[in-house]
Design a protein around this nucleic acid. Structure first.
Lengths: 190, 190, 190, 190
DNA sequence: CAGTAAACGAGACGGTACGTCCCGTCTTATG
DNA sequence: CATAAGACGGGACGTACCGTCTCGTTTACTG
C-alpha cells in the first residue's frame, strides 16, 4: 500500500528522471556552481515549480545528481594484493583523466567546505569510491599478505593520496610508469 | 617617464589595495564563488567602474587576490631530511586545519578545472607552497642522505598527497601520530 | 440508483457548501482578487479538482459566492414615503460603513467592467439591494404621495447616488445629519 | 547643482517614461490588477531591476501611472451656475462613457479599500476631477446665485453622485435628457 | 599656481538566476 | 463515480549579481 502510494503517479518518475538527467549533464560540463535551475527547467521541459516540489532546494537537487556520479565499484581479484592494487590504481588513474566525476569532484569538495549536507554526500561518495580498496585489503589480510597492523585507511591514503595530488595539485602525469613506482614505494617498504 | 607611468597615480594604488583587501576577506570567508563584486564595491567604497578599470574581469581580480594566499614559505633546516620533513609536514598539517587558504583551495582547484588562467595561478600557488619541500630534498641530496634517483616530485607526492587526501577526501585526523606514521612509511622503505 | 444519487448529491452539497463558505470568508476579507482557489481548497479541505468540477472557473465560483452578499432585503413601512426613505437610507448608510459587502463591492464593479458574467451578477445584486426602495416608492405612488411622473430609478439615483459617492469617492461622513439634509434636498424640491 | 544632479542621467527619464507609458497602457486596458511588471518590462524593453530601482514596489508604480489618469481639468464659464453645471455634467457623462479612466476607476477604489497609499492617490485624483465643480460653485456664490448655506461638497454629491451611480451601479443611460432632469431636480428645489 | 587629463563614486542599465505563489488541468487511488 | 491528494506547465513576483555604461566631481601632474 505504501508501496503503491510511493510509486503512485508515473509523471513523478518521469519528471524526476528528466530533471536529474539534465542536472547531471550540466553538472559534468560546468561543475556544481554551473548548474542553473532555470536552465535545467528550460532544457528538460519540467517547470521550476515541479523541480522545487521534488527537491526542497538547489542544494538538494545537486546532492541527488552528484550521488549518481559514483556507480557501484567492483573490486578486482587477481589473487595477490599487489595485483589487486595495480588493477585498482590503474583504473583510478584512468578515471581521473577521463571520467566526468573527476572534473566535478573539486566543486563538490569546495561546496562541502561550507555545506554540511553536501559534506555528508561527499563522504558517502568517497566511501563508495574507496570500498573496492577496503575489500582487497581485507582479502589480503585474510590471506596473511599483510603483516603490519597499519589501518586500512592509512594504506589507502598512501596509495590514492599521491594520485589525487598529481591529478589536481601538481598536475603531473598519471601513467603506468608512475603507478608502478607508487606501488613499489608503498608496498615494498621495509 | 617610465617612472611616472609606473607610479602613475597614488589613487590607483589606494583603490587597488582596498579592493584586494576586501576581495581577500570575502575569498577566505566564502571561497571563490562567494566573492561578489557588488559587495566588494560596497564594503571597500571603491566603485564597480573603478574595479573593472583595474581588473578586466571578476576572474582576474580573483586570481590577483588568490595570489596573496601563499606568502613566501620558509624551509626549515634541522640538519636531517627526516627532521626537515617532520617540520614541514607538521606545519602543513597545522595549516590544513586552521589556515584560511585550506578552505579556499578546493574552490581554486574547481575553477582551474575550467579556466586556464586560474589554472596557471593555481600552478604558481602550488609551486610556492611546495618550494620548501624541494629545498630540503635538494639539501638532503647534497648531503647524500638520499641515494635513490627517485624524482623529488615523486617523493613530495608520497609525503603531501596522503595529507591532502585526509584533509579534503577522507576527512580523517591529521595529528602528530599520523604524521610520524606517514614519515615512517615513506622514508623507511627498503 | 436513486439511492446512490441521493448519497452522491449529499456529498456534492457538502462540498459546495464548504467551498462557498470559505470563498465567502476570503471574499469579505480581501475582496474578489484576494480569493485564492488553492487557499480555499486548503482551508475547506475540498480538493481543487472537486472545486473545478462544481464551478467551471474561478470567476464562476466568485460569482456564486458574491450572490450571497445580498440577502433578501426588507422594506420598512412607516406610513409615509419620507419615513420609509429615512429608514432605508439610515440602514444603507450604516451598512456602507460596517457591512462586509461594502468593502467588496468595488472589486465586483471592477471585475464587471471586463467580465460580462460578473456584470450580470452585479446587476442581480444591485436589483436585490434596491428592491426595498422600489417597494416604498411604489407604495407611495399608490398612496398618491408622489405626483411627479419621474421614474422610480431616477428618484433612487438621487437618493443613493450621493451616499455611494460619499462612501467610495469623496470619503465624507455618512451621519444622521447628512441623511436628513439629503432627504430634504431630494424630497422637498419644488 | 542639486538641479543638475536631479536631472543627471538622461537614461533615467527615458526608462521612467517608457515604463510609465506601458504601465498606463495596461492599466487602461485591464485595470490595476491586470498590470504585470514582467509584461511591462518585456514590452517596454526596460529590465525589471530598473523598474524596481525607480519604484519601490508594484503599488508605487501603479500609483504613479494612475496619477496620469487625471490631467488638469478646466472649469467652464457660461455666466450662470446652471450653464456651468450643465457643461460640467455633460462633459463628465461623456467621459464616464468613453474615457479610459472610467473603466479603471473602480479598480482604484477597490485597491484603495485595502491600501492606504492607493487611498491617498485616489483622494488626490478625486480632488483633481472635482476641482472644476468647486470653482463654478465658488463663482456662483460670489455672484449671489446660491443663497443656501449648503456646503459645496453636498451640492457636488447631489450632482455627480447620481451620475456615478448610473455609470457603475444601475448601468442606466447617461444621455442629455437625464442630465437635464438631474439638473432640474437638484437646482430647482424649493 | 592654473589648466587639464585621468581617476573616481554613484549608480543606471539589460540580462539572468533565484525560490515562491497561484491558476487551471491532469492523474491516481480510495471509499 | 465523487472525492482527496497532489503533480504538472505556465507565468508573475521581488531580489541579487554581473559587466557595461554615463555622468559630474575630485585629484594629481604639468606647463
Amino acid at each position: 500500500m505504501s508501496d503503491t502510494q510511493r510509486t503512485a503517479d508515473k509523471r513523478v518518475e518521469r519528471s524526476k528522471a528528466k530533471v536529474l538527467a539534465e542536472t547531471y549533464r550540466q553538472l559534468t560540463e560546468t561543475g556544481l556552481s554551473g548548474v542553473s535551475i532555470d536552465e535545467v527547467s528550460r532544457v528538460s521541459g519540467i517547470s521550476k515549480a515541479t523541480i522545487y516540489r521534488h527537491w526542497r532546494s538547489r542544494s538538494e537537487l545537486l546532492i541527488d545528481a552528484c550521488s549518481r556520479l559514483g556507480g557501484p565499484q567492483e573490486a578486482p581479484d587477481t589473487g595477490s594484493l599487489r595485483g589487486d592494487v595495480r588493477a585498482l590504481l590503474t583504473h583510478l588513474a584512468s578515471q581521473l583523466q577521463t571520467a566526468a566525476w573527476s572534473s566535478v569532484y573539486p566543486s563538490i569538495i569546495d561546496a562541502a567546505e561550507r555545506d554540511v549536507e553536501i559534506g555528508a554526500m561527499q563522504s558517502t561518495l568517497h566511501r563508495t569510491f574507496m570500498s573496492p580498496f577496503h575489500k582487497v585489503i581485507e582479502r589480503a589480510r585474510t590471506r596473511r599478505e599483510i603483516h603490519s597492523d597499519r589501518a586500512a585507511t592509512e594504506l589507502i591514503a598512501l596509495l590514492v593520496g599521491p594520485l589525487f595530488y598529481r591529478r589536481w595539485f601538481s598536475k603531473e602525469k598519471l601513467d603506468k610508469r608512475y603507478i608502478d613506482s607508487l606501488i613499489k614505494s608503498v608496498l615494498d617498504e621495509g
